[in-house]
Amino acid sequence: MRTALIGLDYIVDIMHPEGKIARCASQAAERDVVTRFNAAKKIARERDWLTVLVKVGFESGYRDQPKHSPMFGRAHEFGALDLTGPGTAFHPDLYVDADDIVICKPRVSAFYGTRLQQTLSASGIERVVVCGVSTVMAVQSTVRDAHDRDHRVVVAEDACAAPTTEEHEASLRMLSAVATITTTDGLHNLS
């Protein structure tokens, strides 16, 4: 089955201790999600899966920023999520390969306003394996969107983090209705 591994928002502003809105930084470090995602990428390479790295951000000047959004509305005040700045760089420990597809998204779901669906369709992708930060936002939104686009969806939960363990676990319970929840090691068992 044609599969894509999708990594969401492994960027400095969101999950690095020096990030400007890094509510998930401590949990991401404690759960070692970057190392787990790097392990998932190794499995993806061995199996010839498409690898996609998605990052949230806004164009210079924040003209595409939804100022009314409780989540994104004040990003410009902090200089956060500026696609021309260092905060939207991938986490320094993340393995980024030349053939990874990099997609920038202007909202929570990786599908909203991006070329992700076209990329998956062009590659004949039937199943997506989703990992990322935060489990309660980007992962939930993208998984639900992928499900509604008729993809088979798998979440490698140990490569995900939320602001708290409780939020992470609650998100996974909800997502289990539309996705298979596994670990990065469990990816070896996908046929």
Rank of each mutant, 00 (worst) to 15 (best):
D48K: 15
E77T: 10
R149W: 14
F58Q: 04
G113C: 10
T51V: 13
F111L: 06
D97Q: 03
Q140K: 15
I43E: 01
C104L: 12
S60P: 06
V136D: 12
V129R: 14
V130D: 06
F37A: 07
A146I: 11
A44S: 00
K55V: 08
A161K: 04
S121M: 07
A22E: 08
V54W: 00
L53S: 08
V33N: 10
D100F: 01
V96E: 10
A162D: 14
D32A: 13
D99M: 00
L81S: 06
I43F: 01
V143Q: 00
A44W: 02
G57S: 02
V96Q: 09
A80C: 09
K67S: 12
D32L: 10
C104R: 12
S109L: 08
D64W: 10
E46L: 13
V133R: 02
V34W: 05
I103Q: 02
F90P: 09
R74N: 11
I125W: 05
K67T: 12
H151E: 07
K41D: 15
I103S: 02
V133F: 02
Y112C: 04
G73R: 15
E77K: 09
E126C: 07
D97S: 03
L81P: 05
A29H: 04
R152E: 12
H76A: 15
E126D: 11
N38I: 01
I101S: 14
G132Y: 03
Y62S: 01
P86Q: 12
S60A: 10
A75P: 10
S123M: 13
H76N: 13
A22M: 07
V54A: 01
I125F: 06
R47Y: 12
S109C: 09
Q118A: 14
V143H: 01
S121R: 08
D148M: 15
I101R: 14
L50S: 08
V129A: 14
